[in-house]
């Protein structure tokens, strides 16, 4: 059974339909990526999934329950945790305080070991644990945003363009880490513009174009698909 199930999802801003009735599924343990050009509706889809824009009944189901009308913070508590676009770290708080905030809803005693694990994944954060988040580099802030999300022990981690604005090497590294996190058992939904890297790492992928899903399938197969190669990987057709 799918962990996240999307049926006929629509997102409207005023009279404009940004997402025009898409279907999408993410199975437990999977890493799925959603690629597409700017303005294709990827971020709107993610906003709808995480509860920042309203959706119709039945459009978003998570872990067997309908998410219609459920506010964003409850979705996070249910295990659907988003890493917002532009990272959204608490800039004036230290790295440690940011991570503590990630464990906000948890009351169990395993917060400390989890933090140690985050520091293991991102040794850079351990070195800078007392530094203010706003003074970290873009890549480090992205690491922190992901680390903070992990602190809440998500069932599904939804990332909005984690490689955006990063130098190519840093972007590559972040995506690799996301792959490692997925291997450790966290289901991942990755929205990316960096199609080549995302397709190389994910299990399955959806391609979005002006609010609709135009292609979907095994990531590897899509990577070889001539239409994808032409439109998203910058290669001539043929």
């Amino acid at each position: 059974m799918s962990l996240l199930e999307i049926r006929g999802l629509e997102v409207r801003y005023g009279g404009i339909r940004a997402v025009k009735g898409i279907d999408l599924e993410v199975g437990a343990g999977e890493m799925v990526c959603l690629i597409g050009a700017n303005g294709a509706g990827k971020s709107s889809t993610l906003r709808a999934i995480s509860g920042l824009v309203p959706t119709a009944p039945g459009a978003v189901r998570f872990d067997g329950g309908d998410f219609a009308g459920i506010p964003a913070f409850r979705r996070a508590r249910a295990g659907l945790v988003m890493v917002p676009e532009g990272r959204g770290v608490f800039a004036r708080l230290s790295v440690e305080e940011n991570l503590a905030m990630g464990a906000y809803v948890r009351a169990d005693a395993e917060v400390q070991p989890d933090r140690a694990r985050v520091f293991e994944i991102f040794p850079r954060l351990a070195e800078r644990s007392r530094q203010t988040a706003g003074t970290l580099s873009g890549g480090e802030q992205q690491m922190l945003a992901i680390g903070r999300a992990l602190m809440s022990r998500p069932k599904l981690l939804a990332l909005d363009e984690p490689s955006m604005g990063l130098a190519p090497i840093a972007a590559q590294k972040i995506l690799q880490v996301i792959r490692d996190i997925n291997r450790s058992g966290v289901t991942v939904l990755l929205v990316e513009q960096n199609a080549r890297s995302a397709l190389a790492l994910a299990h399955r992928a959806y391609v979005m174009e002006s609010g609709e899903i135009t292609l979907s399938g095994e990531a590897r197969a899509l990577l070889a698909d001539p239409r994808v190669r032409e439109a998203y990987l910058g290669e001539a057709a043929g």
């Binding site: 995480s50 509860g51 920042l52 506010p71 964003a72 913070f73 409850r74 996070a76 508590r77 945790v81 988003m82 890493v83 917002p84 959204g88 770290v89 608490f90 800039a91 004036r92 708080l93 305080e97 503590a100 905030m101 990630g102 906000y104 809803v105 945003a145 903070r148 999300a149 809440s152």
Partner: peptide, 25 residues
């Protein structure tokens, strides 16, 4: 307190606070 930390979070970034499971309302 816990509520003090939640205030701090909404002061810094409301959307991120919600993503942390904080009932911002």
């Amino acid at each position: 307190s816990r509520i003090g930390r939640a205030w701090e979070a909404i002061r810094e970034d409301e959307i991120a606070a919600r993503a942390m499971g904080i009932d911002t309302t």
